[in-house]
Design a protein around this nucleic acid. Structure first.
Length: 330
RNA sequence: GCAGGGAUGGUAGAGCGGUCAAUUACACCUGACUGUAAAUCAGGCGCCUUUCGGCUACGUAGGUUCGAAUCCUACUCCCUGCA
């Protein structure tokens, strides 16, 4: 049977502070698109400054402006986070106290894409969460085993070596490929094996083929020295804009220091400072380092993806390839 | 000026006669990534060499010793106490 051509989507990637959000908005306006934020921290309500969240507002938009029809229109969003009159999905919707995951994002994003397509608009994925974007675009199956926090706590107490030996016995195939020093991975692998009684399912190693979509990958590059300068400037500006207050506020609303520290970057080091575990100078220094490290990890990840068209930050550089991509039959 | 203490690789900081090209941390470089992903984790990191190995190094200059980052002398600079 002949299947419909895969729907086209845009995926905009690039290291932190490279200017993804602005590019996405520009392209959305030009090509009637809607943005799906792929950012593992911008999903949370109340985490704004530290995540560089666009200053949007929740609004009724599109078809939903007519409440009667909106109710009837199956699957259509009633409202979205709107910035510069472009709807942004999967942003600012989750309680930061609650656990979210790549798997949930994969589901939510697929739904959002379907919804956008239904309205005849172009889905534009945009964000820095490498693993999350890939999970959506490539559609690889994430083993459907929910986290078992009690088991994890128990395994956490064991050494990586012990965990690795156990995994080798239960699932030699997975053990052969896993990073044997990485407890987090070892624990998850064991979690899957213990829950299902079967080895961790193998997926075909990343061949960068999308299962469900036809993506155009656009990556933003800029010289590392420029990027680093921008990172430091942005950090300074965030601190000035009230970063400490934001974190203190989250703490006051009941988030544990541990949770905050686990968010990383701004949330981690500001938390350490607020607890007086490090000095202010130390905080700024550590932050500068770790944001840069993060940007490098992102680049390492995307280097593997040869589909990405790398462009300079100016939006107009992205217009031509996008136009071509959309015109192409296929 | 006198009395002490110190000078080690990009930085902090161990080592105090051989097993030291030098513990460790940070920075830096490269990489991994199967429901925590801004998380988690690995390798490299004086110079030359694919390996074996060689060369130059622990403030400077000498010395002691089979052998010195480690001991001695002088010098230079730095810190502390007394003046």
């Amino acid at each position: 049977m002949h299947s419909d051509p895969k729907p086209k989507i845009l995926a905009i990637v690039g290291p932190t502070a490279s200017g993804k959000s602005e590019l996405a908005v520009a392209l959305a306006k030009k090509f009637r698109g809607e943005i799906i934020s792929c950012d593992s921290r911008q999903i949370y309500k109340g985490m704004d400054l530290g995540t560089g969240k666009v200053p949007g507002k929740w609004k009724i938009f599109g078809i939903a402006r007519h409440p009667e029809r909106a109710k009837r229109a199956e699957g259509s969003l009633k409202k979205a986070f709107v910035y510069k009159s472009v709807p942004h999905h999967l942003i600012d919707f989750q309680n930061p106290a609650r656990q979210y995951s790549a798997a949930r994002f994969q589901r939510d994003a697929k739904r959002a894409i379907a919804d956008i397509l239904k309205r005849g608009r172009l889905p534009i994925l945009c964000g820095g969460a490498m693993h999350w974007i890939d999970a959506v675009v490539f559609g690889q199956a994430i083993p459907a085993v929910k986290p078992d926090f009690r088991l994890r706590a128990k395994l956490e107490k064991q050494s990586a070596d012990t965990l690795y030996k156990r995994l080798s016995k239960l699932d030699p195939v997975r053990a052969a490929n896993i990073d044997k020093f990485n407890k987090r991975r070892l624990i998850r692998a064991l979690e899957i094996v213990i829950a299902t009684g079967k080895p961790v399912p193998i997926f075909q190693s990343s061949n960068f083929q999308s299962l469900n979509y036809k993506p155009l990958w656009i990556g933003i590059t800029r010289p590392q020295a420029d990027l680093y300068k921008k990172i430091d400037a942005r950090l300074k500006q965030r601190l000035k804009a009230g970063m400490l207050k934001e974190v203190a506020g989250l703490r006051k609303r009941g988030l544990s220091w541990k949770r905050l520290e686990n968010f990383g970057l701004e949330y981690k080091f500001v938390s350490l400072y607020l607890q007086k575990k490090i000095s202010r100078g130390e905080m700024v220094k550590q932050l500068s380092y770790s944001i840069k490290h993060y940007s490098k990890r992102q680049m390492t990840w995307w280097k593997r993806n040869k589909e990405i068209i790398w462009i300079k930050p100016e939006a107009k550089k992205a217009i031509k390839p996008t136009k071509q991509f959309l015109l192409n039959k296929g």
